Amino acid sequence: MSPRRSYDQYCSAARALDVVGDRWTLLIVRELLAGPRRYTDLHADLPGVSTDVLASRLKDMERDGVTTRRRLPPPAAAYVYELTGRGRELLPVIQALGSWGEAELGERRPTDAVRAHWFALPLLRSLNGEGLVEVRLEEGHFHLYAGAEDGPVYGDGPAPREPDARLVLDAGTCASLARGELSLGDAVRAGRVTVTGDGAPAKGLRDA
């Protein structure tokens, strides 16, 4: 485990960056907002990170109380990493960075990797009301826990139960939402997003 580097500045922003300012750390947090993940899953969804760097960052994050590691019971018998309560407190930080970065996103470059669930947090910023929301794209499905105060914020694949709202849209619309060019309400009104369901998130979008 590498010794913690510090800016040695008596400033809360500097202290925060001592813990989460290393390259890849906040992107690991983004992935773990989906709940417990195995090392191999994290590596697959963080294209470009080396195995050594990922292992080092996870050790540092565990040391600093941002993540924890536990062994799943049989038959899985695999280790998973998950955020601690302190780690989950980084959600508004990630969301603020995402909002700030909308202007930097631009069109997708040929070298840019993409995963369907990377659109989860931008969509979550646009939802009103609490509930389970399933999002269907041609590239894949994911689900969101709108208004969740604890536990996973989103997850890969279809919703684990009947969702309170189901959104169907294409990747182009998702990209426009992520870039801040289009609001979710405007996309619904323009017919670019189909909304079904009777829960609060669905009603909020239909009434927007």
Results as ranks from 00 to 15, higher is better:
residue 106 G to S: 12
residue 106 G to A: 13
residue 107 E to M: 11
residue 108 R to D: 09
residue 108 R to E: 11
residue 108 R to Y: 00
residue 109 R to V: 04
residue 111 T to V: 08
residue 112 D to E: 15
residue 113 A to Y: 12
residue 114 V to E: 13
residue 114 V to N: 03
residue 115 R to G: 01
residue 116 A to V: 13
residue 117 H to T: 01
residue 120 A to N: 07
residue 121 L to W: 00
residue 122 P to G: 10
residue 122 P to E: 05
residue 122 P to K: 12
residue 123 L to E: 02
residue 124 L to Y: 03
residue 125 R to G: 13
residue 125 R to L: 13
residue 126 S to Q: 15
residue 126 S to T: 05
residue 128 N to K: 14
residue 136 R to P: 02
residue 137 L to W: 05
residue 137 L to G: 11
residue 138 E to C: 02
residue 138 E to R: 14
residue 138 E to T: 03
residue 138 E to D: 14
residue 139 E to I: 07
residue 139 E to G: 15
residue 140 G to P: 08
residue 140 G to T: 04
residue 140 G to C: 09
residue 143 H to V: 01
residue 144 L to F: 04
residue 144 L to M: 08
residue 144 L to S: 02
residue 145 Y to C: 10
residue 146 A to N: 01
residue 147 G to C: 11
residue 147 G to L: 04
residue 150 D to C: 02
residue 150 D to L: 12
residue 151 G to E: 12
residue 151 G to Y: 07
residue 155 G to P: 01
residue 155 G to V: 00
residue 155 G to S: 13
residue 157 G to C: 13
residue 158 P to C: 10
residue 159 A to G: 09
residue 159 A to Y: 05
residue 160 P to C: 10
residue 160 P to A: 08
residue 160 P to G: 12
residue 162 E to L: 08
residue 164 D to F: 00
residue 165 A to G: 07
residue 165 A to N: 05
residue 169 L to M: 15
residue 169 L to H: 03
residue 170 D to M: 10
residue 170 D to H: 11
residue 172 G to E: 15
residue 172 G to V: 08
residue 172 G to Q: 11
residue 174 C to S: 15
residue 174 C to H: 00
residue 175 A to D: 14
residue 177 L to S: 04
residue 177 L to G: 07
residue 179 R to I: 04
residue 183 S to R: 14
residue 183 S to C: 07
residue 183 S to Y: 08
residue 185 G to V: 04
residue 186 D to Y: 02
residue 186 D to C: 03
residue 189 R to Y: 05
residue 190 A to D: 14
residue 192 R to H: 06
residue 192 R to D: 03
residue 192 R to Q: 13
residue 194 T to S: 14
residue 197 G to M: 03
residue 198 D to Q: 09
residue 198 D to R: 12
residue 199 G to M: 08
residue 201 P to W: 07
residue 202 A to G: 05
residue 203 K to E: 15
